[in-house]
Nucleic acid binder design. Structure first.
Lengths: 190, 190, 190, 190
DNA sequence: GATGAATGAGCCTTCATTCAT
DNA sequence: TATGAATGAAGGCTCATTCAT
């Protein structure tokens, strides 16, 4: 008996991300996903119930994935600025190296595929960052602003960096990284 | 004989924006656009050659529109910070009040509808801002960083503000606005 | 504006009946129905919501149709045997001239298309016959048997006549008709 | 090495009959047959060449089966009425106890699976009955009508009895049986 | 110009059949 | 032999576009 090839799921995810990047969510067809993943269309339905399922599963996969990357090497006991820099770098690296995932998630947000519930659970994955920011405020290192706006500021700058690096083919040298971190840091510091 | 009703173009644009916000680019069909615009499907083809034409025309319309709004009330001869604040406020206001347009443009970027050429012409509309930033740098008011990254920083924060105001139904009080401008300003100032 | 062509429904019904006769319910595809009805597949969906709708609508159409035919020229005040003969003849004629409909209804019975409710409402259309049979029993003209079995007997013989006439290409002469009616009559008469 | 398990053919036949009863010929898929028969889809192709083969084999199986049942306990030398009653009872019992087979055969008749040739060979299995009827006519016990219509009459009533017993969940008591036989007998007797 | 019925290519999905294990 | 994953042709249905009114 031929066993279910578990890394087919990955092929399908990769194919989907690539196609969404190139043509948007509207551009993906089961046919094109299958072709890109080098399998038959029917095979897609062995691994996923339907098109929606591919998209929502991939969405979940991306979200879970990023959550772990965002906080890798992050040491809660390290000084505020060190911790903040770690997370900031992680997110920047993630957004750029997995830019396709960001596009995919963004496109999903305004699609019928992702429901309200899923959207709100997304917020939870930033909790460690929120705790860090609270510490920074207590220690009067950063501005005493609602963390909602602090994270908005931080994420906004990062997203745009990722976009520009990708769209304009910029190399993200250490210098550029430092520059951008500096602006972000100056923006939030007390 | 009734003249080509210029009002209808607007209805079509509005319908398209609404539908893209609700269902993404993938979600719009000529039928749904017609229904939302309260006209017949055939009528769409009197005003636009085809579906692609609706999307690219709307894209152009949005871009041109924002270009004028971004720099309204902007006085080239005013002090740097005043000018910067004017533009910053304009963009924030625009992004929020016409959030649907932002979503639309974002979705278009990763669709087969917008070609590379169109994307690059987008950059041109920020030229007055670039000139202002150059002045700021000359006057040592802001950091001496490539304007590419300065605008990235500025636009990134604004985009995220708009998203959050919309998605989380936040009211944008003067206080919140000031807060956010302060962060942006601290980030870029020398 | 092109108006909805109301006799397209009929074309679709006719095409469906023909195809079900030739290939069974399993054999009909939307493509084949459209082709037989000489319209495009998409057009089917203007007149019917989906395949199921074609089938259930046709089912209803057939049932309603037969109900009127079964009792045409039937005079409630006529003598029992005359009335019974009228109805018997009507049903025979109907089953033969519209044999396709009979096949269709029979096939529907064992398909996922027709629900239990629909099946039971079918019984109602025989009520005038039931009343006639009651009169016959009261007048001691026919056997005093539950009408359920009397109608079973009557309908059973008729169905088989129709099948045989059709499958074996028999001509239904007056003689053959009389012969068959005689057997039916002898079977139920007291 | 395990031998070709003849039992599996039966499982497949049973599964097919059940599914045809529930969903019609259109409703059966190789997947559903395999599942119902509790085997793998691939296994179906060890026992049968393809889907058509399952259906035609089952058709043959049903026909052969009924042929033997129809004439069991039938004594050619018994008086006419006794012989006729035996056959009549056998067919009734068969039609009811194996109602699924009747549905299956009926559905096959209007499907692409059964060819004209197969249909006509069906007639042959009634030959002993035809001989009996000839005897009945010679002995002036029954009407001198073409046996084609005599069998039509007999089979028609039986089929309808079977349908009604099944669809309306009627219990077939000795009384009901006698009643129905009486009608049939009165119908054909001279 | 305006309408919406009509069209048919193309999408999602199913399913008969094959094949590797 | 038995399994069920894999295949891809074909079915139901949608939708961009055309056309008759």
């Amino acid at each position: 008996m031929k066993l279910r090839d578990e890394n087919k799921t990955d092929q399908i995810f990769k194919a989907t991300l690539k196609l969404v990047k190139e043509n948007g969510l509207s551009g993906i067809t089961m046919q094109s996903v299958a072709k890109e993943a080098k399998i038959a269309t029917g095979t897609l339905y062995i691994y996923f119930k339907n098109k929606e399922s591919i998209i929502t599963s991939l969405f979940d996969h991306c979200v879970k994935n990023s959550a772990t990357i965002f906080f890798q090497h992050y040491d809660v006991s390290a000084p505020f600025k060190v911790g903040f820099h770690t997370i900031w770098s992680n997110i920047v690296q993630h957004r750029i190296s997995r830019f396709e995932e960001s596009i995919f998630i963004e496109q999903c947000f305004h699609s019928p595929y992702i429901d309200e519930e899923t959207k709100t659970t997304l917020k939870k994955m930033f909790e460690p960052l929120l705790e860090l920011l609270n510490r920074g405020k207590e220690q009067h290192i950063i501005k005493n602003i609602d963390s909602f706006w602090l994270t908005s500021f931080m994420i906004g700058t990062i997203n745009e960096i990722a976009k520009r690096v990708t769209y304009f083919n910029k190399r993200l040298t250490k210098e550029v990284l430092d520059l951008n971190f500096q602006m972000c840091w100056d923006g939030i510091k007390a």
